[in-house]
Computed example of a mutant assay.
Amino acid sequence: MQQLTNKQILVGVTGGIAAYKAAELIRRLQDHGATVRVIMTKAAQAFITPLTLQALSGNPVHCDLLDSEAEAAMGHIELARWADLVLIAPASADFMARLATGQADDLLATVCLATNASIAIAPSMNQGMWRDQSTQQNLQTLISKQVLVFGPGDGSQACGDIGPGRMMEPEQLAVEASSVFKIGSLDGVKIVITAGPTREAIDPVRYISNHSSGKMGFALAQAAMDAGASVTLITGPVSLQTPERVTRIDINSAAEMHQAVIETLPVCDIFIGSAAVADYRPTSIADQKIKKSTETMTIELVRNPDIIADVSNHPQRPFTIGFAAETQDVESYARGKLEKKKLDLIIANDVSNTAIGFNSDNNAVSVIWNDGKVSLPMTSKQQLGRHLIEEICQHYRKK
């Protein structure tokens, strides 16, 4: 199984003889399903060229903090948001010292300060440098800051010494990276997630819909699967790849989604309604394409079934989570929906913000329940999906 499927790994390469192993590490991470981008320090470029790592990763290698081209496309903040994991391999003694003291004097150090993703280091240095008191103090500082430490290994070194300080082998590092994403414990839990828009037909060629891309729902499905759940994803029309081992049901209209959801409830433990379901549909659908014949046209609409309310009130009610995509008074409207529809949780976001609204790759939300709330800052939808599944898992287990 590819445990890093859809994960975005930012590999930081610092100066040291083990930098040549970064080439193999990129391959092994990709073998496990990850998408890889690379940052190199100036010292790293003395050991291996950016062109080599660019060819292997399939993405441009980032080297300079003040690179005008990078800032125009994917600067240090964009890289920080993009990453699900920042893996620094090799991590030199110098970089460990700079990371421990919070310096931001190059691109890699700056990204580490800016990211919300997990940070892992794979130390690589002479055994004397590893054992030195300053390095060990820096190591403890990094551990106290929740930086993950992979290795180092023990054995012969390029300088001829024998002892601790060898960088872990690339395959071992890929396995360690995979373990970062084993979040929560939803083994055996059955989750149904709705995603994307619905389309309400007017005639054979026209319909009423919205701008939902389905990205958030698909990210939740991936995260739930990674946490061990059995996932059914009921989705409107979107152009997204189905996450591995997720059962996908494609629908078009709200009525079709409603039917598909109700049919899954006998085997559903958690329901997450992240789809942007049309509130109304035309009362009738024309058999043929409506011709342009008058200056105005009136379409009579009727309300669609309320999927989330029907799930919450169903005799076989699962743990029920709704979404509130609002453009104003976000928390107020979300709490009203939480209470009216008797939900366990509601996830609210401001879709008027184009940086996190429909079609964006990023999002920021608040998870709200009857007597509490937690806000999750803007990050990639893939990473946010994992944070949300963790939060949902905690509330589900309590109840």
Rank of each mutant, 00 (worst) to 15 (best):
residue 206 R to H: 12
residue 314 H to S: 12
residue 168 M to L: 15
residue 316 Q to G: 13
residue 286 A to N: 13
residue 18 A to H: 04
residue 294 T to H: 14
residue 253 S to D: 05
residue 216 M to P: 00
residue 247 T to Y: 08
residue 213 S to R: 04
residue 367 V to E: 01
residue 248 R to T: 14
residue 82 W to K: 08
residue 259 Q to A: 15
residue 303 R to A: 15
residue 327 T to P: 06
residue 17 I to D: 00
residue 184 G to C: 08
residue 123 P to R: 01
residue 200 E to Q: 11
residue 288 Q to H: 14
residue 338 L to T: 05
residue 50 P to E: 00
residue 153 G to E: 11
residue 355 A to V: 13
residue 184 G to T: 08
residue 226 D to W: 01
residue 85 L to G: 02
residue 97 A to C: 09
residue 81 R to F: 06
residue 350 D to W: 04
residue 224 A to Y: 01
residue 94 D to C: 07
residue 208 I to L: 13
residue 32 H to N: 02
residue 297 M to W: 13
residue 304 N to L: 12
residue 189 V to I: 15
residue 370 N to E: 12
residue 98 R to C: 08
residue 252 N to S: 12
residue 86 V to M: 07
residue 161 D to I: 11
residue 223 A to R: 02
residue 183 I to D: 09
residue 127 Q to P: 15
residue 282 P to Q: 09
residue 372 G to Y: 09
residue 314 H to R: 09
residue 351 V to H: 05
residue 174 A to E: 01
residue 68 S to N: 09
residue 221 A to Q: 01
residue 332 S to E: 12
residue 270 I to C: 05
residue 58 G to H: 00
residue 100 A to N: 07
residue 303 R to D: 11
residue 93 A to D: 03
residue 107 L to G: 05
residue 276 A to K: 02
residue 174 A to Y: 00
residue 362 N to D: 14
residue 33 G to Q: 00
residue 173 L to G: 00
residue 243 P to H: 03
residue 131 R to F: 08
residue 248 R to L: 12
residue 260 A to S: 13
residue 361 D to I: 13
residue 328 Q to V: 13
residue 206 R to W: 07
residue 41 T to L: 04
residue 397 R to N: 02
residue 256 E to T: 13
residue 340 K to S: 10
